[in-house]
Design a protein around this nucleic acid. Sequence first.
DNA 1: CCAAGACCTG
DNA 2: CAGGTCTTGG
Length: 699
Amino acid sequence: MDSPSEFFQQQQQQQQSHPSFDLYTRSPLESTSTGPSYPASSPVTYPVISPLLHPNSASQRWGGYRQRQCLFSELPASEDGQEEDVEMLGRKAAEGASQAPLAKLGERRRVSLPESCDWNQDVVRVKRLRVDNVLRRNGEMEKEGHRGRRRIASRGLQDEKNGEEEGRRKESREGRRRQRRELKLQLEETRGRLLELQRKVWRAYGEQRIEEEKEEGGGEEEDGGMDEMAEMFSEGEGDDCPASGLSPSVFSSERKREKHESSQNGNSEEFPEEAMDLDVELDGGGVWLGCSLVQGEWENTNSNEKEKFAQALKQELANVVARVIDRVVRLYAESDQSPTPASVLAQETPASRVFGPNPSKKPRLGFRPHALVPGGMHVVEQAEALPLVAKKLQDKRNPLNQGKHKHPLIPPQNPGLPFLPQPPLPALLPPRNKEPFLPSCPPNPPPLPLPLLHYTMQHLFTRSLSSIPLHKDGLSSEPFMEFRTHNPSFPPLPPLLAQLNPPLADRGTDEGMRAGGIGGMDGGDVALYLGAGASQEGLSPCHLKKAKLMFFYTRYPSSNTLKTYFPDVKFNRCVTSQLIKWFSNFREFFYIQIERFARQAAREGLPATRERALRLGRNSELFRILNMHYNKSNDYQVPDRFVEVSELALREFFTAIQSGRDADPCWKKSIYKIICKLDSPVPDSFRLPGCPMDTHRMV
DNA sequence: CCAAGACCTG
DNA sequence: CAGGTCTTGG
């Protein structure tokens, strides 16, 4: 069950017993994940969003679903399948009959939809098919009935035959008419419901926009809401544009044209097709959102659930975009290696530019975060562990910015397969041999200042995505984009890259180290937290990432070690204790997991299973969890040493538990002592500022 | 007394 | 992950 359509089909087969709507489909992997998750997904779900949002989608991925849905498909070959589906629709309609507003909206929709609308025609076609089928079946049944009766009749009662038949014919004609009417009603209902669902899903994306459009009195009300989002994802499948995923805005103008054209054609109510790209891309990236709602819940859940829904979407968007950019940048980095002085970089990326005012212009990236955010959405994801100072400043600016949110919906990129290269995003990433990211593609390719990407992208995107209030102040990603896109004088990427790739890069022998792929400077941290200076006051998310990777080598770093490996940090008491605290937290998590698995193993009855549970292979769940925690982006090869130490700790915990030592309140201390001695030296590459990367992990 | 670390809580 | 509290060892 790897493909979405298969997944959906399976769900569909089950749905008759207990239907529910899965707004997003859940990754199969996620079911095994132990992390927090959204309200328990009902056992039986079927997807709503994609097929509804993309009734006209040409996407192959939805093909299976659409085929079965029949509503949107070409005429299927199999009549049986057809009938099944149509009947299913009927049932769905019946189920939805209680949802009063649906019919109304459907009605309204039907009125406003032009006859030329494919979707509408499809419905009509399905209606006809359904009626035909029933008629045909009735005819057959009648024949059967006649035959049977004829047999009886032939036994003697010839005289009554004619009269009876006459009556039956009338009856059956009546019945047929009745059935036809019922069917019509059913189909109307069904259509109404589907339209309503479409609408609701729709509103979750751009409630506010819709409102606005309504006020303007628009036939464009829905088109408008979606258009913005579509812009963000526009294209991506175009083969002739390798970097299309990066500069959707190139297409957005076209889309605007299309939009206007379609409006002029009177198709303004048509759901924009653009949106289908979204699904294709999300799907292509192997990303799934797991916010599922039980049927009917959507009606009652209102803003809360919708918020979750939108939240999930935002998270995913941010994630995907960040990853894509990340990869493209890496590709780019690998594809060109000519030298340039590193100082240029630092000088060319002053924070002032990043925060510089320029919010009025539309970023060339075409990424307009707030467009996506439904009204009333609060900020959620904050850059983790920003330096205290920086964070407080932000919090002041944006008081809403304090919630906690940990991607409960978004499964790791490769949770189960930590050592396989991440699946490429086919729609977004060009094949490597295609000279990725050639400047020729977008008319005016924004030179990508590397240091501004990577980690920062995730945070910036997420942050700006999730905060409406923010988009007006200087912290929005817009100025950031402005900087990226309105500085043609910014040095082109290749030279920058190369000079940032010191010879060290090649010596990464220890567990696949890459000496800070980008001159050690990880992404926008430079721009965000550093002026032109060499070291910074606080700790950045990048430092956190680095600290986590360091944990693979040292669980108990001394403050001296920390100073050695964070040369770009200006150490003071606060910073030091924060770093110490980080490691303390890392250990805490580590030991908790180890203990959990040790207890689990202790519960195993069979020695064989127990032994297996105590083995910490790279495929084991425990390893996956640890890797996820310390190496979330999975772009660093976990050193064998760490695996060994972890297994040892696991066994220590196990034996302690087994022998009942855990009754002693300080039973863990002895284990801590052991583990403490197992620290190994941190590779030299960590001495460089920024985050070390693993070359093997590159796309 | 102080710093490091564990532990608890939000 | 950050804050606080408590314990412990020097």
